[in-house]
Design a binder for these strands. Structure first.
Lengths: 378, 378
DNA sequence: CCATTATCTTAAGCTGGTGAAGGAACGGCG
DNA sequence: CGCCGTTCCTTCACCAGCTTAAGATAATGG
């Protein structure tokens, strides 16, 4: 009935994650496994402390005992190296943030060794400060890799934890999958607006990575055949037409918009974009117009994505959408409407991530947990 | 080492399909399975007649016995209901076409029952005429579903064979996967140009289908935010800007081009498009200009696809590309070049299907075989 | 206290894989 | 010719993971 792609262990953890609390009978029904099989796998998980029994539901006969994930049974650290800040997140099994920390990004001048030392120290103090036992932490997920961190190996040595690299959009998608409890079988895409535009696509429970782990370059969908040159070397890319850099540059170029948003000395793209979005939200017309213009393009690109991979859920995430989803979400919905109703007979939900600003870091940590817990090697 | 997503049976068949002939030792190395395991699965496959031993390679010690698929051990019928013609293909395990048949499409006025009767009769005579035993045929793959065939059930009843529905582009991709022996792990996309434009995307050995089996609507990538209205209800879709219908209409509207291509009474889009392509190939400048214009858009859309799902192989297929790939393939290659070299550090191969005209029908048959052989139920 | 109902566990068996040891087919060499 | 070593292929014992079938457990209501 329901697909069973790998072991019972994974299926059970996924089911509980998506719809906790659950009894064993319900688990059997959802995963397609036997009650016998559920019984034994659950016993194992109880033994490892990953799952806890909590409460019971009365029925006609023996009441069901409900199962939950123990949020702090295993944890992982997510690190997001952004242009101007580095975000650290400590995440438990349920995707919930146990503690977090933000620090200004390491100066561009600092050497590789310095950067590694700094990250290792921050991660260590985050874990220690959280009160959770160090051995429960399974690893570090790292997003937005700095070229100085080409060898994740270094950070592994410095901290003793395994390190997993991922790109921001894919990590954000996985984070969403955990935090927002997307059903395992449902394909969806997370659109990420940070200093650029990316998409994390999850199909069949697994993120789509492609040949070179470089799937999801949403910002380089072409929206104008002979459009302006993009830094990537092509022309007419979404990012070159309506990316955050373009919005920020346009705002700086227009004295009215710059005034509305209070753009002073050059800061990071992310910070400036957020300033424009805040101004627009407060009613500033010039800033609003800039965002509306950007949203037209983003919406068209979103439609392309939906038509190509056929998802019926789009999650907007990342700092950019955290600040400006009030413009982009309606634009996307409006753009998708006519063709969906007339031709495709589908209805795509567009939602905004609940934790858009930390989505990537959370997702990176979730990926580490997922890898480790599914297979069960300690 | 190599991924092993499901059973040994599937892995072995896939490996042989991709690189026959192979010895058992080589199979063990390629699949990551034990030689012991290979031995037993191969014995089973030999028993079923799916695989045959053929020849041996001398080595230092005991020579290897080579294994091949027996092309005619199991067969399936692929049917492609196109606008104006219906193509029937009888395909063996290796994807090779055993026999084929083309008939004019059933008149639009005919009823559902008529259509089913006609298809059943054609399929029956194809199988019987091929000399292959009827019981070796595992089913019928049907592409380009006519609304009158909404219930594939009817055709199953009329023929006694299971029927599988698929869309043209996905089927073409699977066909390519078989015929051109694409490696199992390599993600790729097949672009299909028929009466419309579609893409079949294969990632992780499985075609990407999406939420509603509607992935791959390549023709509805947006290439111009406020472009011309498309029949789908949106604006600026590739198909509305540069699809085959648009090319044909433009050719008809331009007396020079119409003359070059010899466009007379209205025929099908596919036939007219092929006429334009033939003229262009023969040197007709107006037709060539029309195709060049279309190719600019298709190339940009192909770039979007590559950037979004990260494939490094694009196969052009379908009757449209069969006739006009000499224009489209170079255009796509040229468009991808700059950004691939500068930013993505990848090199995308663009190839033309060897059997572009029958790709869909072959692919549909291949899908039936794949389903049946992998699991081994009869 | 016992029948009823429903949940959960236990025990035996099947399937599909592994690891290690042994048998089979060759060429080369005395 | 017989005896190497070499390499390929098979056999056998075993294990993991899941299923089926039967039984143990915990509540409810007469």
């Amino acid at each position: 009935m329901k697909e069973r792609r790998t072991g019972a262990r994974e299926a059970v953890l996924d089911a509980i994650r998506a719809a906790e609390p659950l009894s064993r009978v319900e688990l059997a029904a959802m995963t397609g496994l036997t009650e016998a099989s559920i019984s034994t796998t659950v016993r194992k998980l109880l033994g490892e402390g990953l799952v806890v029994e909590t409460g019971r539901t009365p029925t006609g006969g023996k009441p069901r005992t409900l199962l939950r994930l123990d949020p702090a049974a295993r944890i992982a650290v997510g690190v997001h190296l952004d242009e101007d800040v580095t975000t650290y997140v400590l995440t438990g099994q349920t995707g919930g943030v146990i503690s977090r920390m933000t620090r200004p990004a390491a100066p561009a001048g600092a050497g590789a060794a310095d950067l590694v030392r700094r990250l290792a120290a921050d991660v260590g103090s985050l874990v220690d400060g959280s009160g959770v036992d160090r051995v429960r932490c399974l690893g570090i997920g790292l997003v937005g890799a700095d070229p100085r961190l080409a060898r994740d190996h270094d950070l592994t040595e410095a901290t003793g934890w395994p390190v997993l690299l991922e790109n921001a959009a894919t990590a954000a998608a996985v984070g969403e999958y955990w935090v927002a409890r997307v059903e395992a079988a449902r394909p969806f895409a997370a659109l990420y607006l940070g200093s650029g535009l990316g998409a994390g696509i999850v199909a069949g429970g697994e993120p789509l990575r492609g040949s070179h782990t470089r799937a999801g370059e949403f910002g380089h969908l072409c929206l104008q055949v002979d459009g302006p040159a993009c830094w990537c070397g092509s022309r007419g890319c979404l990012e070159a037409l309506a990316g955050p850099q373009v919005v920020v540059e346009a705002a700086r170029a227009d004295p009215v918009a710059a005034g509305e948003a209070g753009l002073g000395a050059a800061r990071s793209t992310v910070a400036d974009f957020a300033a424009v979005a805040r101004a627009a939200r407060a009613g500033a017309p010039a800033c609003r117009a800039l965002l509306d213009d950007s949203a037209r393009y983003v919406a068209a690109a979103a439609e392309s994505l939906v038509n190509l991979v056929d998802v019926d859920l789009l999650v907007l995430t990342g700092p950019g959408f955290a600040a400006a989803s009030f413009v982009y979400a309606p634009a996307i919905t409006a753009r998708l409407g006519p063709a969906d109703a007339r031709t495709w007979h589908r209805s795509v939900s567009v939602t905004v991530s609940l934790a858009a600003a930390t989505a990537s870091a959370t997702g990176a940590a979730a990926l580490v947990l997922q890898e480790a817990l599914r297979s069960g090697q300690q």
